[in-house]
Design a protein around this nucleic acid. Structure first.
Lengths: 123, 123
DNA sequence: CGGCATCCCGTCGGATACTG
DNA sequence: CAGTATCCGACGGGATGCCG
C-alpha cells in the first residue's frame, strides 16, 4: 500500500486513493471530452470520433479502453454485419457530470476573481 | 480563440475554457498535495517540503510558481535575516477544497459501485 | 466500420549538485 | 533557508499506414 502524501494531516488513506481514482478518470487530453459526448446517449466509435475534433482513432481506442477498465464506460458489441459497437456510460460515468459542472463553476468564479484582482491592482 | 472540442453539443466555449483552467490547476503529481497543505494555514517553503513526502525542491519551486501565476497561491517575502518566505492560498485557492471533496466523494462512490458490479458478476 | 502497429517527439518529473 | 542548474528517463500523445 502506497503512503499518503500528507504527513501530519489527518486524512484517511482511503480518501487519497479515491482522489487518485477520480483524477485518473478526468485527466488527459481526451477523457472528459469522450465522457461528455456520451452523457446523453450512447454512441458508436466513429460517431465519437466525428464529434471530437482532432482525435485520432489510436487515441480514441486507447482512451475508451482505459475508461472501460475504470468502470466508466461499457462496450457493447452487436454481431451484425458490419459489426456494430456501441459505447455507453455506466452509472458512475453519468455521475461525472456533477464533477464537470463543479470544475466549470470554479473556473468561471476564478476568472471573475482574477479580473477583479487585476482591476484592483490597476487602481 | 480556440475551438471547443464538442461539435454539435450546445456548450458555450467559455465553459470549455473554464474547465481547462480548472484542470490546469488540479492536474499534475503535486499541485493538489501542495494546495492541501496550505488549506488551513500558510506555510514556508521548507515546511511544505517536509510535509509532502518525496517532493524535490525543484518540483516544489516549479509548482508553487505555476500556482502563483494561476492565482491560486500568494507568495509573501519578509525581509528579515534569514529571509522568510510564506505561501498562502488566495480565496480561489481556498475554494479548491470543495473540488477536492467532490473528487474524493465520486471516487468513494465509484469504488462501491465497482465492488457491487463485481459481486453481481460473480453471482 | 472499428480498430492495431510502428515511429516519433515534447513535456513531466526524478536525481543530484550547487548558491545567495 | 529558499531556492537554481544540469542531466536524464518515462510517458503522453501525434502521424501514418495497415487489417479483418
Amino acid at each position: 500500500m502506497e503512503n499518503s502524501y500528507f504527513n501530519g494531516i489527518s486524512c484517511p488513506n482511503e480518501y487519497v486513493l479515491a482522489l487518485k481514482d477520480t483524477l485518473n478518470v478526468i485527466t488527459g487530453k481526451w477523457k472528459l471530452a469522450i465522457v461528455t459526448t456520451l452523457l446523453f446517449e450512447k454512441k458508436r466509435f466513429s460517431d465519437i470520433q466525428r464529434m471530437i475534433v482532432g482525435i485520432t482513432p489510436r487515441m480514441l481506442s486507447k482512451e475508451l479502453k482505459e475508461l472501460e477498465m475504470n468502470g466508466v464506460v461499457v462496450r457493447k458489441v452487436y454481431d451484425s454485419t458490419p459489426v456494430l459497437v456501441e459505447y455507453e456510460l455506466t452509472d458512475s460515468g453519468k455521475k461525472l457530470k456533477h464533477i464537470i459542472d463543479t470544475l466549470v463553476q470554479w473556473g468561471l468564479e476564478h476568472r471573475e476573481q482574477a479580473i477583479a484582482a487585476f482591476a484592483e491592482a490597476e487602481a
